[in-house]
Design a protein around this nucleic acid. Sequence first.
DNA 1: GTCTATAATAAGATAGAC
DNA 2: GTCTATCTTATTATAGAC
Lengths: 198, 198
Amino acid sequence: MANNMKERIKDAAIDLFYKKGYFATSLNDVAQNIGIRKASIYHHYPSKEGLLLSILQTILVDLTTNLHDSIQGIEGIEGKMRAAVRSHILVSIDRQKEVLISDSELRGLSPENYETVVRIRDSYEREFQALIVDGMEAGVWAQGDFKVLSFAILNMCTSVAGWFKPAGRLSRVDIARVYEEFIIGGLKIGTCSTVDSV
Amino acid sequence: MANNMKERIKDAAIDLFYKKGYFATSLNDVAQNIGIRKASIYHHYPSKEGLLLSILQTILVDLTTNLHDSIQGIEGIEGKMRAAVRSHILVSIDRQKEVLISDSELRGLSPENYETVVRIRDSYEREFQALIVDGMEAGVWAQGDFKVLSFAILNMCTSVAGWFKPAGRLSRVDIARVYEEFIIGGLKIGTCSTVDSV
DNA sequence: GTCTATAATAAGATAGAC
DNA sequence: GTCTATCTTATTATAGAC
């Protein structure tokens, strides 16, 4: 647990927004969770929405940073895509609550704040789209609609945050491997076969 | 638009729960949308949650029915999986609002109602899981964790409801085809190659 | 079957004491 | 930096007239 109050408030909010949703959580819930009164929250954040905004910006920036670190220095499009998928899956597991919030609570934002957040998300998506387009041009992947494929891949990976349980059968790395193989296989199809079997 | 009031209330609720979310929507919003007072809603539904429950049950049952109709009479595991994916994608597009609600608003339910809804959803998921397991045993698909793969496939398809726009570039059938090829390719990987290219 | 009126409660946010 | 107290507004839900 963080030792400064601003972070403790944020951690409690992440926990509650994840469990109950943003609108179903009151600032009173958040305050009670850490033993303060709701009025004190306003010393650290301008509003409930400001608290949400801070959570969303942090996780989206961290996703982007982790992506860059992960594909840094890797040669080849397939290797880069494998690393990108692993990065997204592992962050979605390690930062499960924040990723789920980033996937479901954007409606809590005003138009201006929504714009700010979606800009970060879109630039993250474009990095995956570039890997798809480059791979198609290089003949690594089959042809297909790169935008639909990027939505399919990213939403599939993000949804891990909706079902992962720390005490489950599989390790985070096991899960990442299943997604990695499945996605690479899907991107390559057509380059290997269109045989009808069984 | 439905002509009886019970359905008109439901349609308005679907529209608002989709746009704003369940907790951010008040029964006053719903009532104003169809020109009645909020008290009148209680003549048709026992509570706000009862209205949500009705929406969720309808779409989950309809998804199941459409799946059965779609794979009915189709021979072969690959053909059945292709039909199942098409069914899920097309319903997620045609009933976009309800599918999005079914994917994001289960937290609005009491434990008992949550149980009721999740039972339907789980039995739907098990039908996809059976197609994955059967295909692995028959050698149509590569080996892999069938549960993780079922979550990956279903969540990827469901997420179409989050981004589809009726005025977009691609038709509903075009989109379904992209998903179908991608998913079949992912399930087959390992049966065709593990070559590292580029 | 829909209405007006209201009960009961809780929300986000602010003022000002300490 | 946190508190108590309060403002303002909105919510779900119900009672009872028409």
